[in-house]
Simulated assay, not measured.
Amino acid sequence: MPPHELMPIGVFARRSGLTSSALRFYDDCGLLAPAEVDPDSGYRYYSAEQMPRATVLRRLREIGMPLTAVEAVLDAAPGDAARLIDEHVARLHEDAVAARRKAVVIKSSLSDVPGLPIAALKGPVLADAVEQVLTATARDPRMPVLGGLCVEAAPEAITLTATDRYWLSTRTLVPAESAAATPAAATWTATTPAATTWAGTVDGDELRTAAAEARRSPLVRVEATPYGIWLRMAAGREDQYCRLLGEEYPDHRSMLASLPAVTTRVTIAKDLLLRALEGHSGEHIALRIDEHGMYTLTTGDERAGHRIPATVTGQALGISFAQTTLYPAVSTAVGPDVLLDLRGADQPATIRSADRGDLTTLAMPIKPAPAT
């Protein structure tokens, strides 16, 4: 290659974003050899065709990829390279999650405050409740607390709540036994009562992972620390630790307390309603409720609707929801029949089991789509 078409190492370094010392190191490693080396001076020269490889190399190192993996990516076909990058990122995420959880445990161990017994719960019941309620969480960098689950404990019950501000899911669990009734172990002793009241917001991802282990434990004892909660499992199972989120949780209790009276109540078969929602192609769905039942509408036009048998009491009503709000609220309801308590086209709707279970969801309606 003619010398005027080559770049000295300093020029190539500036254009590629790599330092000259890094380029010499990558040459020695065999990852990026120069196009030519002056036999007298030993000076390295690079070609423009080498720029894409240098750029990818720099970016891979920026995400912490080790040299052996970098070499594999650079020499792989595009599909295999993408897979290797995904695997590396997944390992980084797993390592970060593990480090964060260990850090929280370490911080907790540095505190002189002993763990606070909250309650003992049946493991499978706790796991079900966590998975049901966490469907209402959201990943919002502006409000990380929306990715958490609010835990409120009292001697008679523990309430789990999650919200993404458009819908809210809550479930109340009755303790399986008091702390005084549990076998003496760690901070749980015959003379240590459960906490009178306690509240905190637990990291949703960590709690979701912990729920898988809790499902296999007949009994789980919940214990609070300044930075997280311990889920103490039955003998033979590994205890799980979930960190607390420091941000203040949205004031959902005031919202629940200020809900207006129900004006329309609908009792409907869960499977029938889910099938109607699954068969609906739009992002939004309009419902018209009258004494004859419920109609699902695509554009507000009755001719485009689908009638679902339902028992209706109260006022006739038209109301619209986003599919991403209504469908998960209905699908997580417990039991064969669903009860919809409606308060108007612009008020939160309550969705719960018609006959059993205490899982309750509030879904915000939207403005109906204009007819076409």
Rank of each mutant, 00 (worst) to 15 (best):
2 P>G: 11
3 P>F: 09
4 H>D: 09
7 M>G: 02
19 T>W: 10
21 S>Q: 14
28 D>T: 13
29 C>M: 15
31 L>I: 07
36 E>R: 15
36 E>I: 03
37 V>M: 15
39 P>K: 10
39 P>E: 08
42 G>L: 12
42 G>E: 06
43 Y>F: 12
44 R>L: 08
44 R>G: 08
45 Y>G: 05
47 S>Q: 14
49 E>M: 10
51 M>Q: 12
53 R>H: 08
57 L>Y: 06
57 L>D: 07
59 R>W: 09
64 G>E: 00
65 M>E: 04
68 T>W: 01
69 A>Q: 07
72 A>Q: 15
75 D>L: 06
81 A>D: 10
81 A>P: 06
87 E>R: 12
87 E>H: 05
91 R>L: 07
92 L>Q: 13
97 V>R: 04
98 A>V: 08
101 R>I: 15
102 K>L: 13
106 I>T: 11
114 P>G: 00
124 P>M: 13
137 T>R: 13
140 D>G: 04
143 M>V: 02
145 V>A: 01
147 G>H: 00
147 G>S: 14
148 G>K: 01
150 C>W: 03
153 A>K: 03
154 A>D: 07
156 E>Y: 00
158 I>S: 04
158 I>W: 00
161 T>W: 06
161 T>V: 14
161 T>Y: 05
162 A>F: 03
166 Y>T: 11
167 W>T: 04
168 L>M: 13
168 L>Y: 01
171 R>A: 04
172 T>P: 03
172 T>F: 01
174 V>F: 05
177 E>Y: 02
177 E>C: 09
182 T>Y: 11
185 A>Q: 12
186 A>N: 13
189 T>W: 06
200 G>T: 08
200 G>V: 05
200 G>W: 00
201 T>R: 07
206 E>A: 13
206 E>M: 12
208 R>D: 08
209 T>F: 08
209 T>P: 00
210 A>Q: 00
216 R>A: 14
217 S>E: 03
217 S>V: 08
226 P>R: 04
227 Y>S: 04
229 I>W: 03
230 W>H: 09
232 R>F: 05
234 A>Q: 10
236 G>L: 10
237 R>V: 13
242 C>M: 08
250 P>L: 02
256 L>V: 01
260 P>Q: 09
262 V>E: 06
262 V>S: 05
263 T>K: 11
271 D>Q: 14
273 L>W: 01
275 R>I: 06
278 E>M: 10
279 G>R: 10
282 G>S: 15
282 G>T: 08
289 I>L: 11
290 D>H: 00
292 H>F: 06
296 T>G: 12
297 L>I: 07
297 L>E: 05
297 L>F: 03
313 T>R: 05
314 G>E: 02
314 G>R: 00
318 G>V: 05
318 G>L: 01
319 I>K: 05
319 I>T: 02
320 S>I: 04
321 F>S: 00
321 F>T: 05
324 T>I: 07
327 Y>I: 05
328 P>F: 04
330 V>L: 06
332 T>I: 09
335 G>N: 11
338 V>D: 03
339 L>C: 11
341 D>E: 15
342 L>S: 05
346 D>A: 15
347 Q>E: 13
347 Q>C: 12
350 T>M: 08
352 R>A: 12
355 D>K: 13
355 D>N: 13
355 D>G: 12
361 T>E: 02
365 P>M: 09
368 P>V: 08
369 A>H: 09
